[in-house]
Design a protein around this nucleic acid. Structure first.
Length: 718
DNA sequence: CTAACAGCAACC
DNA sequence: GTTGCTGTTAGG
């Protein structure tokens, strides 16, 4: 075993493959799979960081193999199972191996110096008591008291002391000393004991004859799930070293569980998300790798933490769009978790959904997932589908149907609350001239401008182009007839405030979830005393709704139904159903539409018919999960070059025998001086696409091809 | 004749 | 990505 197969930490497709290096005598026995090493690479023997993926006796490259220069890590930073998953990600999502590696090793650093890469591993300084003597200073007393209880990190100690001089002085007096957490660890490892919490779901899980496949539970959010998670955590902590990962859709759920679980389980549970600082990430990484943290509640990035004995992966709300990552590599957590379980049958993967997704239906049908009967049913709130065409024929031209208006006014009288869903931000969707028919459009994206009344601006929903609203048509120069058309949240707010001046009207849209501060403010806003709440799809990202929400009204269901993505109807179906369970109080949901015959709306009353139609539609057009759809985005600085490159790629894919479609449109990218266009490939076997791409990269004249390409394999949400 | 430079292939 | 080799060409 004198040869190591390594992958370089680099971003070029051309050398995205393993390279052989000899292990020098002095490092024999030390180099292990999953470790990082420094190797000389290329004509100039430049020092490169590389990951050891395999060890073997000899190499096909004979005398030309070079020697590993040094080791970066003392312990592997990637497990065998993680290496396997990296290879899967590279293959399945068509990304660089490096991109997959980064997912798993983001918290692990290396230092780049003038000579190349320097071997380096960050570690956390901890302090411990050496001699327990009385000290005089109050700060020093506090430090001693803290250390008497347990060892503590330098960061925490500095925070408690308020200065670093006191710590230094105590260190000088040899009363305390610091040590490297990577080498020595001390933490309270005793596991508290509980009376196990009751959870019907847990009992169902136990009763199920677990096969070696992911388990699926259809179960509403809220108490039932909470109790189930709690029981699962308790059971995990009773084992010797088992670990549990609970993945939730977003940070706010973490906040919720932190409040609920910290007191119960203390430091055995940690909370992880992408917003942590590098230091915090690193600490979590170490503590989990060393088995000190047994339970992690985190967002999708927590999936890549270095668990040692991962017994359970629980995926909360498995069809939540946030599990599909929008940037390269465009992986999705459900796919990765299922794959993980295939390679690691000892890990128990449990997927939960409130409204069943099409992918789940198929996987259960084909016995790739096993369904566990859920003890609870969905909300019983009533659904009314309102035909707005009929409403119009009857002379009601208002955006609100007579029946919904009646219900709203009844709610206002009886002190009940009403929520409206309107998935259109801003004041109006279009600016239009009735005299000459002119529509204001974004010059780069060819979509109509939206209107922001407060700032007298027109803006593009895709890029960041804006245009001043003058009130005069730039085409026919008339003021009459030129103005905003369509209903946006801001306009609806204005209208409802005018109609019901003595009632409190609130809005909730994407601006309220932009950052944690906005989020916190929005949560307070929701708790305040309001009668009418108007929200975009952002509504479902909150869960602290007050009591007495009697009615939810979807003002324009057509927006959700006609999004043009193949999952639009599935998302709409899920969305409308989730509105029924916004709170347990909801009595009725009103869905206003211009197409009452749409199978999604019919399906709200008869779920079976919805699933039948949806599956038939996917099968007919060979959309996922009944076929593979690859969406490719091509980026570039100049629209002309971009279109030329897209054309080339399109031809190449066609010549490889693939069913390929291209968009003639070029769009500007928000916040950047770049443009994009799209290609789409449909194929029965994903392998055919990967083969074609490999042939293109290897054989074609790709030198003139300067545009960047991102690949989205079976995009779930768009 | 050289210097400059793009085009290209290999990197273990 | 980085390096160095190759063929081409402008300039003297």
């Amino acid at each position: 075993m004198r040869i190591a197969e390594v992958y370089l930490r680099q971003k070029s497709k051309k050398i995205d493959r393993p390279f052989d290096y000899r292990i020098p005598d002095r490092l024999v026995g030390q180099v292990k799979k999953g470790m990082r090493v420094v190797v000389p690479f290329g004509k100039g023997n430049k020092r490169h960081e590389a990951f050891v993926l395999a060890l073997k006796g000899d190499s096909d490259f004979g005398e030309s193999v070079k020697e590993i220069l040094e080791i970066i890590d003392l312990q592997p930073v990637l497990s065998e199972a993680q290496i396997k998953l990296c290879q899967f990600i590279q293959r399945y999502y068509g990304c660089l191996f490096y991109e997959a590696l980064v997912l798993f090793t983001a918290p692990v650093k290396s230092i780049v110096t003038a000579e190349g890469i320097k071997a380096y591993q960050e570690s956390i300084r901890y302090y411990r008591l050496l001699k327990d003597e009385a000290v005089r200073g109050s700060v020093q007393k506090r430090i001693m008291a803290l250390l008497r209880e347990s060892d503590i990190s330098r960061e925490a100690l500095v925070a408690a002391a308020g200065n670093t001089a006191s710590i230094r002085n105590l260190e000088k007096k040899r009363l305390i000393e610091s040590y490297d957490e990577a080498l020595a660890l001390s933490r309270n490892m005793s596991v508290p004991t509980w009376e196990p919490t009751e959870s019907d779901l847990y009992d169902c899980l136990l009763a199920t004859n677990k096969g070696k496949v992911p388990l699926y539970i259809r179960c509403p959010k809220g108490e039932t799930r909470h109790a189930f998670y709690r029981r699962m955590i308790e059971e995990t902590l009773q084992t010797k070293e088992g670990q549990l990962l609970l993945i939730v859709a977003e940070n706010n759920y973490i906040t919720y569980y932190r409040k609920a679980f910290t007191d119960l389980f203390g430091t055995l549970v940690s909370f992880y998300h992408g917003g942590l600082s590098q230091k915090e990430r690193y600490r979590n990484y170490q503590e989990i790798a060393q088995g000190h943290v047994r339970v992690v509640i985190g967002t999708r990035s927590a999936f890549f933490l270095p668990f040692r004995h991962l017994d359970h992966i629980l995926l909360d709300e498995a069809n939540d769009p946030s599990y599909a990552v929008p940037h390269m590599p465009k992986y999705d957590i459900v796919t990765l978790a299922s794959r993980w379980q295939e390679d690691n049958p000892h890990t128990n993967v449990v997927l939960l959904e409130e409204v069943q997704g099409i992918r789940s239906v198929k996987n259960i049908e084909e016995k790739r997932w096993q369904e566990i009967p859920s003890p609870e049913n969905l909300s019983q709130s009533k659904i009314h589908v309102v035909d707005m065409m009929q409403e119009m024929r009857r002379g009601n031209l208002d955006f609100m149907s007579k029946a919904l208006r009646k219900k709203l006014e009844k709610n206002l009288e009886t002190g009940q609350r009403t929520v409206f869903l309107l998935n259109a931000t801003g004041y109006a969707n279009y600016v239009f001239c009735k005299e000459c028919g002119y529509v204001e459009k974004c010059p780069d994206c060819e979509v109509s401008f939206k209107y922001d009344k407060a700032n007298a601006l027109m803006y593009c929903g895709y890029c960041d182009q804006t245009k001043e609203f003058t009130g005069t048509c730039p085409n026919c120069h008339q003021r009459k007839g030129y103005g905003p058309i369509g209903l946006g949240i801001d306009r609806l707010m204005e209208i409802l405030k005018k109609r019901y001046p003595e009632h409190e009207v609130l809005t909730l849209d994407a601006r309220d979830t932009q950052n944690s501060k906005a989020y916190r403010l929005a949560m307070e806003k929701i708790q305040s005393d309001w009668q009418i709440l108007i929200g975009s799809s952002t509504l479902l990202r909150f869960f602290n709704y007050p009591d007495h929400i009697a009615t939810v009204g979807v003002l324009l269901a057509d927006i959700e139904l006609n999004r043009g993505h193949y999952t639009a109807s599935e998302q709409a179906y899920r969305f409308f159903n989730l509105l029924r369970t916004l709170t347990p109080d909801v009595e009725d949901v009103w869905v206003q539409t211009h197409q009452p015959e749409h199978y999604v709306l019919k399906g709200l009353e008869k779920p079976q018919s919805y699933y039948q139609e949806e599956i038939a539609f996917r099968k007919l057009l060979r959309y996922p999960p009944y076929g593979n759809l690859i969406q490719m985005m091509i980026f570039g600085k100049q629209p002309k070059v971009l279109l030329k490159d897209a054309g080339k790629l399109y031809e190449w894919l066609k010549e490889e025998g693939l069913e390929c479609y291209r968009s003639p449109n070029v769009m500007r990218i928000r916040g950047r001086d770049q443009f994009k266009t799209t290609l789409m490939v449909k194929t029965e076997k994903l392998e055919n696409f990967h083969k074609a791409m490999k042939t293109i990269v290897d054989k074609r004249e790709t030198y003139g091809f300067t545009s960047k390409v991102s690949i989205d394999v079976n995009p779930l949400y768009g």
